[in-house]
Design a protein around this nucleic acid. Sequence first.
DNA 1: TGCCTATATGTAACAAGTTACACATTTTTG
DNA 2: CAAAAATGTGTAACTTGTTACATATAGGCA
Lengths: 322, 322
Amino acid sequence: MATIKDVAKKAHVSVATVSRVINQKGYVNEETKQMVLQAIEELNYVPNELARSLFQKKSHIVAVMMPHLTSYYFSDLLEVIEDETINANYRLMICNSKDDPAKESKYLKIFDQYNVDGIILISNTNRIEDYLALNIPMIEIDHNLSDAIPSITSNNFMGGKLAAEKLVSNGCKKIIHFRGPSGLVTVQDRTTGFQSVLKENNIKCFTYDLAFLSPDPKDIENKILAHLDADGIFCDSDVIAILAIQALKRAGRKIPEDVQVIGFDNIQLASMFEPKITTIEQSTSSIGKAALKSIMRLINGEELDYFHQTIDVKLIERDTTK
Amino acid sequence: MATIKDVAKKAHVSVATVSRVINQKGYVNEETKQMVLQAIEELNYVPNELARSLFQKKSHIVAVMMPHLTSYYFSDLLEVIEDETINANYRLMICNSKDDPAKESKYLKIFDQYNVDGIILISNTNRIEDYLALNIPMIEIDHNLSDAIPSITSNNFMGGKLAAEKLVSNGCKKIIHFRGPSGLVTVQDRTTGFQSVLKENNIKCFTYDLAFLSPDPKDIENKILAHLDADGIFCDSDVIAILAIQALKRAGRKIPEDVQVIGFDNIQLASMFEPKITTIEQSTSSIGKAALKSIMRLINGEELDYFHQTIDVKLIERDTTK
DNA sequence: TGCCTATATGTAACAAGTTACACATTTTTG
DNA sequence: CAAAAATGTGTAACTTGTTACATATAGGCA
């Protein structure tokens, strides 16, 4: 593989001049520049990023830490983050913690070793000090583990509120809320927003916690059978909504006549499934773009517009509500 | 951040000795070793991987090129690949081509710049020479773009055959095959396997091509209405199967009494959906593990057991077949 | 005893870039 | 027209680690 020396020799100049041409820095005569560019072309030269990074103490690598990759919400988000990262001329190192602290700390070491320039953190770790100790620009998505780390989240409070308002205005009197793990701020915020409206209207609600990754269908079915007269169900994910709808059908409940269902996320399947699911849309695209914009500002030492940024959600009305 | 020099100074030895301790190479006195280890501990020293990589011309990075990240099959696969990569003590750089040649060649340059050690390629590019020119160990998954690149694929022929045998032995006489894009070898192999059994049994089959990423529900519905008397449907993905089943329900066809459906992939949803979908399971876990094993052998200059490796598939019987 | 080998450690070159600084030439300015 | 500023280019130090080679000592063996 050709190095900068080979290019220098071929163009009859010094490596410094080649470097100046590549980085468009300092003075270079137009003719010299053309000769260098031609040598680069002929040798098929690509500057070695490792050497560059070593000197500059910048790797041009952004790392994203995710709890898993196989749910729609996360893979959608990952796709946006990857795209925005490459557009910003950075590379993406992907880290799947699988909620395993050992794997997560293995990655923390790697961040150090590679001079990772920025970290996008989606994690519920209880070792947030380890992250802070790295002293690497960082932003969180969907969490708020430290006041020292800027964050981006959907407006989950608003999501819960929108769902409740819809169910209430459609006449629901007895409601079930299948929510995610109550340890997550996102889930807490949704619950608060949802409850705020229900309380105002004096409506009874049964709340149950479920895992996001693989919610237990049997569990959902049992809860539904336990409250067969419920007329409104709010689910913290579209996958949960799909499971709930199927349990309701088996129990002979008509949707949306007998019972109305609202999901969360607006995954592709929500509109493919029959009946098409009314849901609260989280804009993974906006979240991902905001994340990259913020991390790039931090990397470049600029100020952020918002320390804790909130992305609006939207109620998408389909066939599971009246 | 501490460097090897800081450690050397603190332990009153030379950098060479520190390096020997870190890499467990060459002779080091036990006492000296302990002093060095203590200095490392106290300084919280982590060797800079960029400097290391630069010298060794090895980055310890594996890149995976995928056409997209948001379908279950790919995100499952990615999760396995990520896990196996980190277990092999490598890091994963993720590359989402989005079937965009421009983005793909941007990544090719990056592979060069970072001295990427190995590439796991899932792509239908028509510029395979560009990959070969990189001279980086490579393996393909689900494709066979060059005889020079070892590959790993599910036994798609077997998958098609198993599906056909099931439908035929269950008495189907008029069959629809909703397959993926016919340009993919995986799709071709499935079709060949499927047809081989149908021909033997003299059974009529209508074959339609669909996109994998977002198959058009309207299109599927129209084809189903055009052959309302079909009694067997083979779908090249579970998502297609879900769409087909819903169209069939709307058309008043009973499953599996009137018509039987077989999907492909065995995504999580296939067993959550109602009716639970009979499907051909691809083991993303086996594929991912085989991919990492192969690429590691190539990186280490070892021989492969199989140049083109085939992973068995399995028929999972559920409620959409008799 | 003398030579060979194993053990132990340091010096300096090297990987492939970037850039401070020196120096030369040309252009601008007062 | 002299001084200052702008332009153009090269040398060498620097980023952080690895390792070939030099050197030194101790123990084993003929």
